[in-house]
């Protein structure tokens, strides 16, 4: 009992070290707008009812759906909470809210094994990270932030511009490489992206690169040809560097609705996805889709984009996410 209390204790300043404080602060600030929509709604609801009843649960259901948690997962959570509240005779609205939020995240925490967020580097040769996603989710920006992160950890990072399709994509990544001061491998516009990826893998080996990040063109998951092309990119990389891509991230925009689950499924079928990066969490969206994705496919979120600064890409931490979504106003 007492998820909220647990979070409050965990994120009280006394308990945290400096680095952790910074990170918690990024979550709290980045998710301010999301929180306003979610936490205040839960709060309002609990204030309007003295005792929970059927309509109370209906309204709870709507709050979860509005957070893009998805219909089937929402119905299941509400159903479980309803049963449990009857069994334990819980009638206090605040306790029910606590219970429902607990259930929302329990599934995430227990589904799948231990999660390591940081990129897992191989002991020898370059580690390759493939970044994929539908159009406009922020792949290139995420790559820049990841490169920044690992350059600052002392790694030799190289970028590879395998988005040869979208106008301006190569230029965009090139500008980032210049700003970050890291090498980049590019091809001609409209050239075969797999051959650019191959060049990238070869150069990364030659230049003793620690981390090669491969950018790919945005593609809608129902376009078979484009998905096959992505599969080919992944296979070509593995030919040059065995076991690569060691990491493959799917970038998902926090504003994404229920189609996010389909995206994750189709991309997972196409390349060996090792995680999700959720971007644009500094908007008003709640990003509930990550719960639905985890529920259906077991894919973990590895990083979360909480703002436009290079340092606003944080390791994903369920407790911090939850704290940022529900309780952040009490921080400091």
């Amino acid at each position: 009992m007492g998820l909220f209390k647990f979070l409050k204790d965990k994120f009280s300043k006394k308990e945290e070290n400096k680095v952790e404080q910074e990170s918690t602060k990024t979550y709290v600030q980045g998710m301010e707008k999301s929180r306003k929509n979610f936490a205040s709604k839960l709060d309002n609801l609990s204030k309007r009812y003295k005792e929970v009843n059927a309509t109370y649960f209906e309204e709870l259901e709507e709050i979860l759906i509005e957070a893009d948690v998805g219909v089937s997962l929402t119905l299941r959570i509400i159903d479980e909470a309803l049963t449990e509240s009857k069994e334990k005779n819980i009638k206090e609205p605040k306790e029910i809210n606590d219970l429902v939020v607990d259930k929302m995240f329990l599934g995430y925490a227990t589904n799948g094994g231990n999660i390591v967020n940081e990129i897992r580097f191989v002991s020898e040769g370059p580690t390759v990270l493939l970044v994929a996603g539908v159009n406009g989710v922020g792949k290139t920006t995420t790559i820049a932030k990841l490169a920044y992160r690992y350059i600052h950890q002392g790694k030799k990072v190289m970028l590879c511009a395998a988005d040869t399709f979208r106008a301006g994509a190569i230029e965009q990544l090139t500008i980032w490489a210049e700003r970050l001061g890291c090498p980049i491998v590019t091809g001609k516009p409209e050239s075969d992206p797999a051959s650019v990826a191959f060049d990238g893998a070869r150069k990364a080996k030659e230049e003793n690169i620690d981390l090669l990040i491969v950018d790919t063109a945005g593609r809608l998951q129902n376009k078979t040809n484009l998905m096959n092309e992505l599969g080919k990119i992944s296979r070509v990389i593995s030919k040059e560097i065995s076991g690569a891509p060691h990491e493959a991230f799917l970038v998902i925009d926090a504003t994404t609705g229920q189609n996010g689950v389909v995206q994750a499924k189709e991309f997972k079928d196409c390349v060996p996805l090792t995680g999700i990066v959720i971007t644009k969490m500094d908007g008003t969206s709640k990003g509930g889709i990550i719960l639905a994705i985890r529920d259906e496919l077991g894919l973990p979120v590895r990083f979360i984009g909480l703002g436009e600064k290079m340092t606003d890409l944080e390791e994903f931490d369920l407790d911090k996410y939850l704290y940022g979504l529900c309780l952040g106003d009490e921080y400091e």
Binding site: E66, A67, D68, T255, T256, Q263, G283, T284, S285
Partner: peptide, 12 residues
């Protein structure tokens, strides 16, 4: 408006 956007699209 992205056809894939979720419930929050209305706030936007």
């Amino acid at each position: 408006v992205d056809a894939m956007s979720g419930q929050d699209a209305i706030n936007v």
